[in-house]
C-alpha cells in the first residue's frame, strides 16, 4: 500500500550555459511512495508554476528506462541509489519521510549545463560519428541467415549494445571518462562478424574522438559500471583496450 512522504529538495538552478548556478531548496509534501522520481519533480514543478517561480528544467522522455534522455545526480549518485535503474524508473518508495534530497545535473566538462538539470551530451553523438557503425548502404545486405553468429557472441554483443547513451558513466566517474560508453559500442561491433572489416579503424577513430571531446582518462575505479542503468560491464573497457592496442600495433592511425 502507498503512504506519503514530505521531503526537502536541494536542486541546482542555472538559467543558461554561461550563468552562475546555485542550489535552491524546496519543500514538497504528500508525495506518494508509488510515484516515480520524475513524477515527484512534476509535482514540484506544478507547485512552482502556481507560486510564480519557473519550473525546474530536466530532460526526460520515454519514462520507461530505455531512451536515455533522463539523468541527474541524486544525493551524489548518478540516477540515484538503485542499481541498473534510470532516474525515471526510480520510485519514491526508496526514500524516507523527512529526507533531504540533493539533485544536480551530470557533472562533466564534456557535458556543459544548458539549464538547471539539462546538459549537452552531443559529444556522444560525435563519438559514434567517428566510427560507431558498420558501413553498409541500404540495399547491399545479403540474406540474413547466410552469416551465422554463434549464440554466445550474439548475446555478448547484445549485452554491450544495450547501452542507452544516458551519460551516467561519465557523470559518476571522478575523471569524467567516456570509456564505458565508447567501449560498449566498440565491443558490440567487434563481437559480430559484420563488424570485422572496420574493426581496427573503428576503435582508433572512436578513441581519438573521445579524447578530443575533453573526457577524462580511465583509472579503473569501476564507478561507471556501478552507475550504469543498462548493466554494461567494465569488461568492455578491457576489450576496447585490447582492440586499440592491436590496431595501433598494426600501424592504424586515427583519421578524423
Amino acid at each position: 500500500m502507498a503512504h506519503t512522504l514530505n521531503l526537502t529538495l536541494r536542486i541546482w538552478r542555472q538559467s543558461d550555459r554561461d550563468a552562475r548556478g546555485e542550489f535552491r531548496t524546496y519543500d514538497v509534501r504528500g508525495i506518494s511512495t508509488h510515484m516515480s522520481f520524475l513524477e515527484m519533480l512534476d509535482v514540484l514543478n506544478e507547485q512552482l508554476i502556481q507560486q510564480g517561480e519557473e519550473p525546474v528544467a530536466f530532460d526526460h522522455d520515454c519514462r520507461e528506462g530505455i531512451c536515455g534522455q533522463c539523468g541527474m545526480m541524486i544525493n551524489g549518485q548518478a540516477h540515484g541509489p538503485d542499481r541498473e535503474t534510470t532516474t525515471c524508473q526510480l520510485h519514491m518508495r526508496r526514500f524516507e519521510n523527512g529526507q533531504t534530497i540533493t539533485i544536480e545535473p551530470w557533472r562533466a566538462r564534456a557535458f556543459p549545463v544548458i539549464r538547471d538539470l539539462v546538459v549537452d551530451r552531443s559529444a556522444f553523438d560525435r563519438i559514434i560519428q567517428a566510427g560507431g557503425y558498420i558501413s553498409v548502404r541500404t540495399g547491399q545486405a545479403p540474406e540474413a541467415n547466410t552469416l551465422p553468429v554463434p549464440y554466445e557472441d550474439a548475446e555478448k554483443a547484445l549485452d554491450a549494445a544495450a547501452c542507452i547513451g544516458c551519460g551516467a558513466c561519465v557523470a559518476q566517474c571522478k575523471n569524467a571518462s567516456a570509456m564505458l560508453f565508447t567501449a560498449a559500442k566498440v565491443s558490440h561491433l567487434a563481437l559480430l562478424p559484420q563488424g570485422q572489416p572496420e574493426r581496427r579503424r573503428r576503435v582508433v577513430n572512436m578513441v581519438a574522438r573521445m579524447d578530443s571531446e575533453q573526457f577524462g582518462n580511465c583509472t579503473n575505479t569501476y564507478e561507471c559500471e556501478a552507475a550504469c542503468p543498462a548493466g554494461i560491464s567494465v569488461g568492455t573497457i578491457s576489450r576496447m583496450n585490447r582492440e586499440y592496442l592491436k590496431a595501433r600495433l598494426a600501424g592504424v592511425e586515427p583519421n578524423l
Binding site: 557503425y133 545486405a141 545479403p142 540474413a144 551465422p148 553468429v149 554483443a157 559480430l192 559484420q194
Partner: peptide, 22 residues
C-alpha cells in the same frame, strides 16, 4: 524480408539459436 537482411548487416544483435541462425 529485406528489412531483416539490412538490419543484420548493420550489426543489429537479434536473438539467435545455438546454430547461429536467427
Amino acid at each position: 524480408a529485406n528489412i531483416i537482411d539490412q538490419c543484420v548487416a548493420q550489426g543489429v544483435p537479434f536473438a539467435r539459436e545455438y546454430g547461429g541462425m536467427l
